[in-house]
Write a protein that binds this DNA or RNA. Structure first.
Lengths: 213, 213
DNA sequence: ACCTGAACACCGTTCAAGT
DNA sequence: ACCTGAACACCGTTCAAGT
């Protein structure tokens, strides 16, 4: 019977990430992470300062999954890829968005992402101030989309039918919602996820226009 | 000594809102709400089904603070007002954004807001499908801005100086962030909150262009 | 040096008991 | 009908004790 692998900050973060991915944010506790490692919760305190620090490290790990920037393509394409990357990461770890609020200062991984985004924009010809503006809109859009996407009353593949049932709209009180649901259901194959590209293109068009003037 | 006001669902929600506004989301517990009302936590269960239901009711109350739509103005102005309204409400109750994740189906107040937004857009001439697109971008942008605004490493009025200190950027590793901070500090009076209008105008311009074509 | 048992001050919730 | 005390199964964290 092999000796138990010794604990380390890295293994604790690994375990916490696994627990969060499996059981969501509500299932992440010092005790559950300990259980995951076959160890008492108190042992974790020798490797992480506390739950806040652990959560911070897990968020940092997730942010680190955002791909490295492509600098050999036009700014619009480079920026679009980063945005898709961020959305993909936030979708893979839905619980991480809610965790952002417990962090105050951004960690190095998030700063690296910000830096990469600004680099793409500056190379594209944006002034420092406009790059700051552009970063702000893009960041808000991507985070916000991930947030709304997460709280949809239906599953991505499921289409809009489920939504109609789930919320049972009184048509006369909500005519605009009703016609929208009708049309989306009638048009079949509506995937809310497609909205991401529509909005992203709109924002990028807007930035292009600002750049030209 | 006056008889104690009898408990009611409404009074419980009032108290929960007061606790959340004062102590944040972490301070909101059945026991703390009970304390706020001078009552044991267990008494609350006679008026709300449980914590989830209470949280739902509190969110519903907050969403209800979003103003009624102005339908006698051009769509662009009407939509802009609603967006500013939503942002203001989310800023007044910063903890509510994090609470959205615990809700599955949107309550009537949120549906009313969605309906109002769609009404503005449809009156402006957007097709059903384009109104859905437009709603999606706007919603994502506003929520996302509120989210990023909430996690700024510095206080709104404080300017960017605090940010520089707080995160102590190694300039050579983050040249783009460094130049940005420099310029914003040099330019004085940078208020991140101003970014909201810049991005909102960009999104609305984009929608206007889509409407015209 | 690393791990843990017991303890403390908290959670949400149930249920039988009080008025 | 409305409120509550005691209890249960959980939290994060401290600290003295074990190896």
């Amino acid at each position: 019977m092999p000796q138990r692998e010794p604990l380390s900050a890295e293994r604790v973060v690994d375990a916490a990430l696994a627990v969060a991915d499996r059981d969501g944010i509500a299932g992440l506790s010092m005790r559950s992470v300990g259980r995951e490692l076959g160890v008492e919760a108190m042992s974790l305190y020798h490797h992480v300062a506390g739950k806040d620090a652990l959560v911070g490290a897990v968020v940092e790990r997730v942010v680190g999954e955002i791909g490295r920037p492509a600098l050999d393509v036009p700014w619009r394409e480079a920026v679009a890829r980063r945005c898709r990357d961020v959305r993909a990461v936030l979708r893979a770890h839905p619980w991480s968005l809610g965790l952002l609020e417990s962090r105050r200062a951004p960690g190095p991984a998030l700063l690296l992402h910000h830096e990469a985004m600004l680099e793409c924009l500056r190379r594209g010809g944006f002034s420092v101030v406009d790059a700051a503006h552009a970063f702000s809109v893009l960041d808000a859009y991507v985070y916000g989309f991930a947030l709304t996407e997460q709280h949809l009353p239906f599953e991505p593949g499921e289409g809009a039918d489920a939504m109609v049932e789930e919320m049972a709209l009184p048509r006369d009180a909500f005519p605009r919602l009703a016609e929208m649901v009708d049309e989306l259901v009638a048009g079949r194959a509506y995937d809310y996820g497609d909205e991401f590209e529509w909005g992203l293109a709109l924002v990028l068009d807007g930035l292009e226009a600002r750049l030209a003037r």
